[in-house]
Computed example of a mutant assay.
Amino acid sequence: MASDLFKASGFGSGLRRRAAVGIGVLIGCTGLSSRAMAGEAEAMTLLKSMTRYMAAQQAISFRYDTDLEIITNDKQRLNLASSGTVSLARPGSIRATRSNGFINTESVFDGKTFTLLGKGRNVYMQVPINGSIETLVDELKDKYRRPLPAADLLLPQAYEELTDGVIDVKDLGSGVIGGVECDHLAFRKKDVDFQIWIAQGDRPFPCRYQITSKLISGSPQYTVQVSDWQTGAAAVGQDFSFVPPDGARKITFDDLKKMKDMGELPSHYQL
């Protein structure tokens, strides 16, 4: 069920604040349509500015916290929380860590080889992938069925991916995420809704990104929140070489698929 959320969310794919008014006013207000259209236009402009800023950064590092909501067969909502770090250098280098209490992994890509290290088991898997970060995202999603969460925000075509199939747009005004004042935008597609909080000012990075699947009963959500955003010379973790830890054992991708504690979910979450 959770893997369906990743696919539906676009990982396997990418109103200014107003006073509340009564239903009668909403129905009878002849100026509502033009104001809504103005809100849509501003939201699209803010989103495009964010994606252009992201694409222009040659070196990036940040910390993240994620929250994956899972709906059990008896309709109970559970949440799987993870934290990690990401550092990247365009066009083709990235290093990412992820820990959720059950899984502790590190992924490294140097433009030629993708490595996944399972720190708990002290095992690592390597596959050849030659190209850019965009190539890596596509191959992990399509060939290996291991999509990178929220990777669509990092791609050069992020704006096109995010807006493809959008049927409703809202500018919800300001919000504060981790002490950073943000523009809060909401978008609807046929299969998913998503919200994004974009830092105001000259560094419009995504502070929070939330995706709601409409194809799964209960409409579970996936949220990623970003902190410690750094770019250029201030970006940390810009070494993309991989040196196996002492005693680490190399395994194949088929071996990896058999390890339940190396998947997207711990075994006892697969309800």
Rank of each mutant, 00 (worst) to 15 (best):
residue 239 D to P: 02
residue 178 G to A: 03
residue 173 G to N: 07
residue 123 V to A: 04
residue 141 K to C: 11
residue 206 P to E: 02
residue 156 P to Q: 09
residue 206 P to C: 01
residue 14 G to F: 03
residue 242 F to D: 02
residue 1 M to H: 14
residue 147 P to F: 04
residue 190 K to W: 05
residue 15 L to R: 10
residue 127 V to S: 12
residue 71 I to L: 11
residue 159 Y to T: 02
residue 89 A to C: 01
residue 134 E to T: 15
residue 61 S to G: 10
residue 269 Y to S: 07
residue 219 S to D: 11
residue 147 P to R: 05
residue 236 V to M: 02
residue 249 R to E: 15
residue 84 G to I: 10
residue 219 S to E: 12
residue 19 A to S: 07
residue 187 F to Q: 08
residue 93 S to V: 00
residue 243 V to Q: 11
residue 47 L to D: 05
residue 84 G to Y: 10
residue 39 G to I: 06
residue 144 Y to W: 13
residue 45 T to A: 14
residue 142 D to K: 15
residue 241 S to K: 02
residue 21 V to E: 07
residue 8 A to E: 13
residue 98 R to W: 00
residue 128 P to N: 14
residue 85 T to R: 12
residue 31 G to N: 12
residue 244 P to N: 11
residue 52 R to A: 12
residue 44 M to G: 05
residue 217 S to F: 08
residue 3 S to M: 06
residue 256 L to E: 13
residue 115 T to P: 07
residue 190 K to S: 15
residue 56 A to T: 09
residue 247 G to A: 11
residue 130 N to L: 10
residue 141 K to W: 08
residue 256 L to Q: 14
residue 186 A to I: 03
residue 208 R to I: 03
residue 49 S to F: 00
residue 251 I to M: 13
residue 221 Q to E: 13
residue 194 F to E: 03
residue 20 A to V: 10
residue 74 D to N: 14
residue 196 I to D: 04
residue 90 R to L: 03
residue 78 L to A: 06
residue 39 G to F: 05
residue 252 T to S: 15
residue 156 P to S: 11
residue 144 Y to H: 12
residue 133 I to K: 03
residue 131 G to Q: 12
residue 180 V to S: 08
residue 170 K to V: 08
residue 192 V to G: 00
residue 144 Y to F: 14
residue 226 V to Q: 04
residue 230 Q to Y: 03
residue 192 V to C: 04
residue 153 L to S: 02
residue 40 E to H: 09
residue 145 R to A: 13
residue 209 Y to N: 02
residue 68 L to N: 06
residue 18 R to M: 08
residue 199 A to F: 00
residue 178 G to Q: 05
residue 189 K to E: 07
residue 108 V to N: 01
residue 166 V to H: 09
residue 65 D to Q: 15
residue 123 V to Y: 05
residue 16 R to P: 14
residue 168 D to S: 12
residue 88 L to Y: 00
residue 163 T to K: 08
residue 187 F to S: 10
residue 50 M to E: 11
residue 241 S to T: 09
residue 52 R to K: 14
residue 5 L to S: 10
residue 196 I to H: 09
residue 25 V to G: 01
residue 2 A to D: 12
residue 92 G to Y: 02
residue 255 D to E: 13
residue 38 A to L: 10
residue 239 D to H: 00
residue 262 M to C: 11
residue 245 P to C: 07
residue 212 T to G: 05
residue 74 D to F: 08
residue 231 T to H: 00
residue 212 T to A: 04
residue 140 L to K: 07
residue 145 R to K: 14
residue 239 D to K: 00
residue 7 K to I: 14
residue 190 K to H: 11
residue 112 K to F: 03
residue 215 L to Y: 00
residue 66 T to P: 09
residue 147 P to V: 09
residue 113 T to H: 07
residue 97 T to Q: 13
residue 79 N to I: 06
residue 186 A to E: 13
residue 6 F to W: 13
residue 99 S to V: 10
